[in-house]
Design a protein around this nucleic acid. Sequence first.
DNA 1: TCTTTTCTGTTAATATATTAACATACTTTT
DNA 2: AAAAGTATGTTAATATATTAACAGAAAAGA
Lengths: 204, 204
Amino acid sequence: MNGYSIPKATLGRLPQYLQYLKELSQANVSATAIAKGLSLGEVQVRKDLAVVSGAGKPKVGYERAKLIDDLERHLGYEKYTNAVLVGAGKLGRALLDYDGFEEFGVKIVAGFDCNDQAVQLGKNTKAILPIKDIGTYCAQNDVKLGIVTVGQGSAQDVCDTLVASGIEAIWNFAPCSLKVPAGVLLKQENLALSLAHLNNQISK
Amino acid sequence: MNGYSIPKATLGRLPQYLQYLKELSQANVSATAIAKGLSLGEVQVRKDLAVVSGAGKPKVGYERAKLIDDLERHLGYEKYTNAVLVGAGKLGRALLDYDGFEEFGVKIVAGFDCNDQAVQLGKNTKAILPIKDIGTYCAQNDVKLGIVTVGQGSAQDVCDTLVASGIEAIWNFAPCSLKVPAGVLLKQENLALSLAHLNNQISK
DNA sequence: TCTTTTCTGTTAATATATTAACATACTTTT
DNA sequence: AAAAGTATGTTAATATATTAACAGAAAAGA
């Protein structure tokens, strides 16, 4: 009913296509192959691709590079976003060190922790700064996204701080529902629940 | 069309309800309140709850404890599953140390790494064992689930090893699609893609 | 050049999910 | 004890998503 938008179900599958395509090396890929590779219906794949990209060639398939390009554009990955991470526990530091995010348009520019002393990390040498500086830091570095990897107890506080710092979106790893004002996006990541869901399907 | 099963869309929301309910402390909760708390339609909440649980009381709502119970049962959380984790990098160790999984029926009993020497961890004192022992370990400890937190290069190898060890399900954090035989469940966790999806929605 | 094969892309049919509308039941208050 | 208010639960209407069926188009081979 929306003038022109991508169906929600389709949007949810786009990342899968993108990831799959990036693993391949051939120049052309057929919807049939993608469908088989991802265990989806081949008509569904074609429909999805039709939404984001141009036509494919019969007997040949789609041009892989162009498809990746179109997918990335539709997912908005070309637009770079600066992010900060709060909570330098093991998970937080794992994410800080992980360099796979930049590929998808997000750059974690700094970590913060309530622990006052600034720590320099090994591999990527991203500093961990005291949380009191977060407001000015975000303002100065055009930070739009905040990643929360603190415990449940302080998550809402951190969230509020981030919001006050002008953050537009929050990615929360703490196992609790955060409250954010209307204009702020919130993505809840609950690893335990993901796992639980998988557990549920085992030997069902 | 299925004799008697939970609608997929509903199943996907059950974890949300569960998480939300666990945060509360009151004895009774109304569907209206849940709907508001999770930004869902209140009719939808009622329909979902109707699938998994008994009736609620008008003017009062649902009995929170019973609801949690029913949700957990329907999600199969009461059935405990032993898991092993392969790849003791930062992310791997973060997951090993995280004690929130047990609450959802999954117990990570050991970590494995190609690094030969067994390491003892601090907090939860879970050992990290050499990967060559994984086969016998899994057999002896009734391990059904494998968590893969190694790099992209060795993910498929590790996956194959796990499958050979009799694992029934795999939770993969490596950013690549793994191939598993028909009987084995695979859940792909791609943190970068989650983040990308969020990034896409920013200032759209 | 013609036929066969393997893809695409569209249209129609089915299934699933969401939303809206309403009638009913339990508490509380007066 | 009656009335008001608040939730429930069901039925029907709408929207969305998936699947199936088919017609056309480029490449490959005869």
